[in-house]
Simulated scan of single mutants.
Amino acid sequence: MQILVTGATGFVGRRLCPALRQAGYTVRAMTRRPGDYRGAGKATYGDVHDADSVRAALDGCEAAYYLVHSLDDPDFARRDAAAARTFARAAAEAGLRRIVYLGGLGDDQDKLSEHLRSRREVERLLGRGGVPVTTLRAGIVVGDGGLSWEMTRQLVERLPALITPSWGRTRTQPIAVDDVVRYLIGVLEPPEAAGRAYDVGGPDVLSYNDMMRRAAAVQGRLVPVVPVPLLSLALTPPVSWCLLTPAWLSAALWLLTDVDVQAARALLGSMANEVVVRDNSIRSLVPFEPMGYDRAVLAALAEHARAGRDPVPA
Score class of each variant (00 low, 15 high):
207 S>P: 02
259 V>A: 12
236 T>D: 01
184 L>V: 02
233 L>R: 14
167 W>S: 08
221 R>G: 08
215 A>N: 03
240 S>L: 10
165 P>C: 03
257 T>L: 10
194 A>W: 12
194 A>H: 08
194 A>D: 14
269 G>C: 12
160 P>F: 12
163 I>W: 05
203 P>E: 01
193 A>P: 09
224 P>E: 03
157 E>S: 02
266 A>Y: 13
263 A>F: 14
241 W>I: 12
242 C>H: 10
257 T>V: 09
211 M>C: 06
235 L>V: 09
156 V>S: 06
171 R>H: 07
175 I>D: 01
265 R>P: 11
228 V>D: 05
193 A>Y: 10
176 A>W: 01
235 L>P: 00
250 S>W: 14
188 L>D: 00
226 V>I: 05
195 G>M: 05
175 I>V: 14
215 A>Q: 03
249 L>G: 02
255 L>R: 15
263 A>S: 07
269 G>M: 05
259 V>I: 14
259 V>R: 12
223 V>Q: 02
184 L>E: 00
243 L>E: 00
201 G>T: 02
235 L>E: 03
157 E>L: 12
167 W>M: 07
213 R>D: 09
250 S>Y: 14
270 S>Q: 05
248 W>Y: 04
219 Q>C: 11
187 V>F: 06
258 D>Q: 11
256 L>T: 09
256 L>Q: 12
155 L>I: 08
161 A>I: 05
168 G>V: 04
186 G>D: 06
252 A>F: 08
245 T>N: 08
161 A>S: 07
187 V>C: 06
176 A>R: 10
226 V>L: 02
266 A>G: 13
232 S>P: 02
206 L>I: 01
221 R>C: 12
168 G>A: 11
190 P>Y: 09
160 P>E: 15
203 P>D: 00
189 E>Q: 08
220 G>N: 01
268 L>S: 05
207 S>R: 07
203 P>Q: 04
238 P>I: 11
244 L>M: 06
253 L>N: 03
160 P>Q: 13
267 L>P: 01
183 Y>R: 01
194 A>K: 04
247 A>C: 04
219 Q>P: 01
166 S>Q: 11
170 T>Q: 10
175 I>C: 05
197 A>C: 07
221 R>I: 13
252 A>Y: 10
179 D>R: 13
227 P>V: 09
234 A>H: 13
237 P>M: 12
186 G>A: 14
258 D>W: 15
200 V>F: 04
269 G>D: 10
233 L>M: 10
259 V>W: 15
162 L>R: 01
193 A>I: 13
189 E>P: 02
250 S>K: 08
220 G>Q: 03
155 L>P: 00
186 G>L: 09
181 V>R: 03
243 L>I: 04
243 L>D: 01
238 P>T: 10
264 A>V: 12
199 D>H: 05
251 A>R: 15
174 P>Y: 13
163 I>V: 10
235 L>M: 09
266 A>L: 11
166 S>R: 11
205 V>E: 09
201 G>Q: 00
158 R>N: 08
199 D>R: 06
255 L>H: 14
175 I>H: 05
205 V>P: 08
161 A>N: 04
181 V>M: 01
261 V>T: 11
178 D>N: 02
160 P>D: 15
205 V>Y: 09
233 L>T: 13
237 P>F: 12
181 V>S: 04
219 Q>K: 13
